[in-house]
Every structure is written in C-alpha cells, then in structure tokens.
Amino acid sequence: MERDQWSQFKLRVNINAPADKVYNSWATPGGLEKWFLRKALFRDKAGKAKSEDTPIEQGDTYEWYWHGYPDSVVEKGTVLKANGKDLFSFTFSMKCPVTINMYEEAGELIVQLVESGLPLDDDTAMKHFVGDSRGWIFYLANLKSVLEGGLDLRNKRMELTNVITA
C-alpha cells in the first residue's frame, strides 16, 4: 500500500431517518450528546456558550467529553463548515479535519465521514489511522441505532474500560 493511502479514510452508513434529524445529530450540542458524547460544549466566535439545541456554526469552538472517561480526556477543536443541511466539518485529533456529508443513494440517506490529513510518520500513522477509524465505525453504528430504533450502545460506566463501546 502506498504511504499516502494512510492519510485519510472514508466511512459510510445508511440511516433510515429524516435528513434534518440526522444533520441536527451532528450540528447541535444536544444532538451529539444523544449518540456520541457525554458532554458537548460549544462556544461561538464571541466566546458565548451555545445551548443544547442551538445550531453549531462555522468558527465555533468545542470541548468534547466521552462516557467511560474522566474529564481529563477532552477533545478541543473548531467547526470548519456547517451549512445547515448536509455538510458538517470540524477539526479532530491532531487537528485533522473530519467532514460529514449526507446524500441520497439508491433511495436511502447516506452519511459519509472522511477524516483526512492524517500523519504519515512511522510513530503515529497506523495508530492514528486504525484508532480513529475504529472509533468512528462504532459511533456511526451507534448513530444509526439511536436514530432508527432508540437503542444507545455506548458504555456509560467509568469502571468498564477497554471495551469497543467507549
């Protein structure tokens, strides 16, 4: 495999839910907390905190906290794009951009996630590529589960560690 093939990955999932509901699951703090995060804190460009149902916009910054991890495990980043309909992008681990696109294919709504700009040095390439893609696979499956049937698959217990659901 050529080295630059490790610089990004693309994941897709079909979700049987209205497009606006799927988009809001990514683009509101409360939406993210239903399937992805324990706590999603967003601030606008002026530094004002956003409420759980306030749409996230380009330039907003975030702090994300996961179930199963203490508050010392936090991801901080910036929203790169948010068009209010079918495109949402943000910086993620190591400031790599993650882009969410939604579109119809074969009569179904597809959610596509692309994480790009992954490091290619020997020390982090595999760890980052494999670690991030593994996490996103679970969370995309959980998004589908929550939106289609209401079942949240996340581990919410701090005393359970090294499980695929956190």
Rank of each mutant, 00 (worst) to 15 (best):
A40R: 02
A40M: 02
L41I: 06
L41W: 06
F42D: 05
R43F: 12
R43N: 14
R43E: 12
D44P: 00
K45T: 15
K45Q: 14
A46G: 08
K48F: 02
A49W: 12
A49F: 11
S51L: 09
E52C: 09
T54R: 04
T54F: 00
P55D: 07
E57K: 15
Q58E: 12
G59F: 00
D60K: 05
Y62F: 15
W64A: 14
W64M: 14
W66H: 14
H67E: 06
H67P: 06
H67T: 03
H67L: 08
G68M: 04
Y69G: 08
Y69C: 08
P70R: 15
P70Q: 12
P70E: 09
P70V: 11
D71P: 09
D71L: 10
V74Y: 04
E75A: 13
E75L: 11
K76C: 13
T78H: 14
V79E: 08
L80M: 11
A82E: 03
N83E: 01
G84D: 09
D86Y: 02
F88V: 02
S89C: 09
F90S: 11
F90C: 10
F90K: 10
T91C: 04
T91V: 01
F92R: 04
S93C: 12
S93T: 15
K95P: 03
K95A: 11
C96W: 03
P97D: 01
I100F: 01
M102A: 01
Y103P: 02
E105A: 12
E105H: 02
A106G: 09
A106N: 14
G107P: 03
E108N: 13
E108C: 09
L109R: 01
I110V: 15
I110K: 15
L113D: 00
V114S: 05
E115P: 12
S116N: 00
G117I: 04
